[in-house]
């Protein structure tokens, strides 16, 4: 039922592969997907930015009851991260076990498989974060 729809996945690869985003030139708000008007200050003036790949972990949780399409990797960890430029972002944490995680620890972005479609077999890649190496 919950398939990977290729055009939807493909459209946002810039953000998901490389953390390319937009910043509002007026208030500094980060927008992950191309904005037409800033949600915060309603300015229409944006710059392309590449978000920093490193940051610190603010909070994390383990998904033990996954949504359809994510069963194969469950349990997996969702983290709330503050990147070095102050941008706050949600992402999966990888290459770690929950007991190794601490609030405030340094993490860095990496590209991983986020899921595979069980029928079409298309692979969706996305940024994840891992403890900094």
């Amino acid at each position: 039922m919950f398939r990977i729809k290729v055009p939807r996945y493909w459209r946002h690869k810039d953000f998901r592969y490389r953390l390319n985003a937009w910043k509002c030139n007026h208030c500094g708000e980060t927008h992950f997907f191309q904005p037409l008007i800033c949600r915060k200050c309603r300015s229409r003036d944006f710059s392309r930015v590449t978000l920093p790949e490193s940051g610190k972990l603010l909070a994390y949780t383990v998904v033990r009851s996954p949504p359809e399409g994510f069963e194969a990797q469950s349990p997996y960890i969702i983290g709330f991260i503050e990147l070095d430029d102050g941008t706050r972002i949600l992402g999966q944490l990888t290459d770690c076990y929950p007991e190794e995680l601490k609030q405030g620890m340094k993490v860095e972005a990496t590209l991983r498989k986020i899921r595979e479609d069980q029928e079409d077999k298309i692979i969706a890649y996305c940024y994840k974060f891992r403890p900094a190496i």
């Binding site: 999966q92 990888t94 990496t110 590209l111 991983r112 498989k113």
Partner: peptide
């Protein structure tokens, strides 16, 4: 490799 890794992700690393 981890569950979420393949040749492409390791190549990118």
């Amino acid at each position: 490799a981890g569950l979420d890794e393949d040749t492409v992700t390791m190549a990118v690393e």
